[in-house]
Design a protein around this nucleic acid. Sequence first.
RNA 1: GGCGGCGUAGCUCAGUUGGUUAGAGCAGCGGAAUCAUAAUCCGCGUGUCGGAGGUUCGAGUCCUCCCGCCGCUACCA
Length: 609
Amino acid sequence: MEHESAAGEAEGRTRILVAVAWPYASGPRHIGHVAGFGVPSDIFARYHRLKGNDVLMVSGTDEHGTPIMVAADREGVSPAQLAQRFNGLIREDLERLGLSYDIFTRTTTRNHYRVTQDVFKTLYDKGFIVRQTMLGAFSESTGRTLPDRYIEGTCPNCGFSEARGDQCDHCGRQLDPTDLLEPRSRIDGSRPVFRETEHFFLDLPAFSERLSEWIGAQEHWRPNVRAFSANLVDELRPRAITRDLDWGVPIPLEAYDGLDDKRIYVWFDAVIGYLSAAVEWARNRGTPDAWREWWQDPSARHYYFMGKDNIVFHAVIWPSMLMGYGQGGEVGADRGELGLPHDIVSSEFLTMEGKKFSSSRGVAIYVNDFLSRYDPDPLRYFLTVAGPESQDTDFTWAEFVRRNNDELLANWGNLVNRTLASAYKNFGAVPEPGVLTDDDEALLQAVEAGFATVGSLIEAARFRAALVEAMQIAARANQYVSEQAPWAKLEADRARAGTILSVTLRAIDGLKVLLAPVLPFTSQLLHELLGYEGQLSGRVVSRDEVEEDGSAHAVLGGDYGAATGRWEPSQLPAGQRLQQPRPLYRKLDADEVVAGELARMERAAADGC
RNA sequence: GGCGGCGUAGCUCAGUUGGUUAGAGCAGCGGAAUCAUAAUCCGCGUGUCGGAGGUUCGAGUCCUCCCGCCGCUACCA
């Protein structure tokens, strides 16, 4: 496909924005969350970096909104304190999983407030944000907005006593909170009061034609995303983007100066994070305009990764905001239109031993808990090969152990181990190859071909197929080793045995790169065992960033530019010293893991009730 | 209710514009090998492709209806 001449490479670089959904800082994240937005986006970003493209991968914790206030109240801390704590925990989870963000920040930074207010103000000045009065529900005790879903009562239609403010789960009827008989707050049981309140509304119908045309042209989107989005555009209504709360980005209009009871709605500011994080990243590295190369250069491509429950925000609301913002505002500064999403990669949901994840019911496997007992690559492997890429899938411990032992370890781990052990013991270095036979060439060809096939599958966001393809090449190499049986030739024809091992080492050196987007930690280990120095893909680190006002916050980032890995076949030099081999993966005891983890879940469920 | 999805070998699933005898992995059975974390390799799969109609020369793949499961339904994120 690609002709990779040294000259062609520099010109062929593409700027790619990898925009990853912002985890909500109301609690620790479970493996379903990282299955949806985390691992897929990281595979994509790592691949494009190896390929030589200019990747900017941005995200952060989403820290505003009612659920955080409710959780903070429950713990007797401020929303800021609660968000601070979970930002730290989530950051740690993502770092341990090896998610290679260029910046993972948060929505409570001064920078984010400034960018959000600029977007709001610009849309307001252009007439895309309008004021409207509506009837809102309030908690009498706190004076705050009570979102529809926090209100329950008796359904006027079927009499179900636990109907929610927006919908009755019993009869399925859509409701308005004012319809409920005996309404009460799910937070403290008090009776909500309804009163007139003025809010700002995003005029979505103003964009409906452009949206419709734009979505219609996105033939490369996953069919479910496209169909769902197209359907949404047919019935757009103006949407309230402020709330009666004191936790959120303040409304940047003079009339609201100093007023503490109305803030910008969390979703409006959360999606702006994709832009504000890029601005922050550029400033932090001392090139304050560098973000424009991704956001205001039409050749840059934007890929968004999220769970399916977020499609509406990414396919309709955020694009509307971008269209409305146009050349900007203070931030945009008339330097070009902001780019629209090129692809919206939405995944389905992961269930847990057949049940939907639910923290309150103890149906959850938290990332930090998981990684305290198991390694990140087996989890990344599982979530890629058996994750909810195109339909809901189920996580079971038995299946996790099986995938680890019988696929990852047995096929790939064993191929590496048997090859390295033999080469190390008998040669200590990469053997000098003799003349290659047709079988030797065929194996090397198969690996080389993988760079095109695996690569194009990743580019199309078909991660499962890409991984299966790479694993099939590993199986092909195992087949080659068994057929050639180098161990049987060591005595009689040591040179031929050396050639076979040299060919196999080159094959696993290539496979190491093909698998690196999915398995970065063990690819790095293998890189070192093969005698290389330095980083194959770069490392993710946490560091403090200081803002203009002197306040500091931690962000996740990395220097990936120094990495030496390239998306191309092995150049493993003969004679390179090998390191003492050690296994890439641990074999797990099925009975022990399954029994232990199920017991753990039952305890958690018991605690939750 | 509306929208969308799923239902394919014992299990988990591939099958992207309809086209040769419907595939993979795992489990199972037989064999080879023993370099390797008992990890590998070879051989063995007739399953009403949820059910019923229809379109077509031809449908797992399109249309209609039905059955079962699930998700979303935008002021929780």
